[in-house]
């Protein structure tokens, strides 16, 4: 498998959150998306900036939640991946 692009990593982060019902702890995202803490921080900042995700406070932890723009992006990303595989690009 080739090196993941920035877009692939964003796709992995958003997919991980979506798989958990749209709400996930930061540490879990880190393991699921296979990223270091500093890498994850940089990606999350970007995603927060673009309003793909948001944060909510739980009883003990802070959670990352997926926003509508995040779902829209994930839809486009998956279509693109399907397109890429279908046409062998």
């Amino acid at each position: 498998m080739g090196k993941r692009t920035r877009l692939d990593i964003i796709g992995d982060i958003l997919s991980a959150i979506q798989d958990k019902g749209g709400r996930m702890k930061q540490t879990h995202i880190m393991y699921k998306a296979n990223l270091s803490h500093s890498q994850l921080k940089s990606y999350l900042e970007e995603l927060l900036d673009k309003e793909f995700i948001g944060t909510v406070k739980g009883k003990h932890n802070e959670y990352i939640i997926m926003k509508d723009k995040g779902y829209e992006f994930l839809e486009k990303f998956r279509q693109m991946k399907e397109f890429e595989k279908t046409f062998g690009l």
Binding site: G22, D68, E75, Q79
Partner: peptide, 19 residues
Amino acid sequence: STLFMVLAHGKKNTAGHNR
């Protein structure tokens, strides 16, 4: 039809989860 299915497939995968 293939392109139509490609686009529908991406939509289906994302719509299957609760927003």
